[in-house]
Simulated assay, not measured.
Amino acid sequence: MHSTFSGLKETFQKCEVPLERVAKVHVFLKNIKDLPEMEKVFSDYFAADSFPARMTTTTEFIDSDCLMMIDGVAYTGV
């Protein structure tokens, strides 16, 4: 799960937007049983007092070894 959040962080860094500016994320899990672990990893990337709004859902992925996907919306400050 860290690789998914690292990928999100890298993408925003390429746009010169820190994770602190992320306003909302959508998290897609293959298995709902992974929710507690995802929440722990989530707190490694976002400060507890400033979590972005979040929607989490489960879904089947085309790629059978995909367990999680995430997308996010951030405020650029421009």
Rank of each mutant, 00 (worst) to 15 (best):
M1A: 08
M1Q: 08
M1L: 07
H2F: 11
H2G: 12
S3H: 13
S3R: 10
T4C: 14
T4H: 10
F5G: 01
F5V: 01
G7R: 00
L8K: 00
K9Y: 09
E10D: 15
E10A: 09
T11R: 09
T11M: 14
T11K: 11
Q13M: 13
Q13F: 15
K14R: 12
C15T: 13
C15D: 15
C15M: 14
E16T: 15
V17E: 02
V17H: 04
L19Y: 04
L19V: 03
L19P: 01
E20H: 12
E20P: 12
E20Y: 09
E20K: 12
R21V: 07
R21I: 08
V22N: 03
V22T: 04
A23G: 12
K24I: 06
V25Q: 03
V25G: 01
H26F: 08
H26G: 12
H26K: 13
H26S: 13
H26R: 12
F28Q: 01
F28P: 07
K30P: 05
K30R: 06
N31T: 11
N31D: 14
N31L: 11
I32Y: 14
K33M: 14
K33Q: 14
D34N: 07
D34T: 02
D34C: 10
L35V: 06
P36C: 10
P36H: 07
E37C: 09
E37P: 09
E39W: 05
K40A: 08
K40W: 07
K40F: 07
V41M: 15
V41F: 12
F42W: 05
F42N: 00
S43T: 08
S43D: 12
S43E: 09
S43Q: 14
D44C: 07
D44L: 09
D44I: 05
D44Q: 10
D44V: 05
Y45T: 01
Y45V: 02
F46T: 00
F46R: 00
A47K: 08
A47L: 06
A47S: 11
A48T: 11
A48H: 14
A48W: 12
D49G: 11
D49W: 08
S50H: 07
F51P: 02
F51H: 05
F51M: 04
P52Q: 06
P52S: 05
A53T: 05
R54Q: 12
M55R: 10
M55Y: 09
M55C: 14
T56I: 04
T56S: 03
T58S: 08
T59R: 00
T59G: 01
T59A: 00
T59F: 02
E60F: 03
E60L: 06
F61K: 00
F61Q: 00
F61N: 00
F61C: 00
I62G: 15
I62L: 15
I62P: 14
D63F: 07
D63A: 11
D63I: 01
D65G: 13
D65E: 15
D65P: 03
C66G: 07
L67T: 04
L67H: 05
L67F: 06
L67V: 05
L67Y: 05
M68C: 10
M69G: 04
M69S: 06
I70M: 08
I70V: 08
I70T: 06
I70L: 07
D71G: 14
D71Y: 10
G72W: 02
G72N: 02
V73D: 03
V73N: 05
A74L: 06
A74Y: 06
Y75A: 09
Y75L: 10
Y75W: 12
T76G: 15
T76Y: 15
G77N: 11
V78P: 15
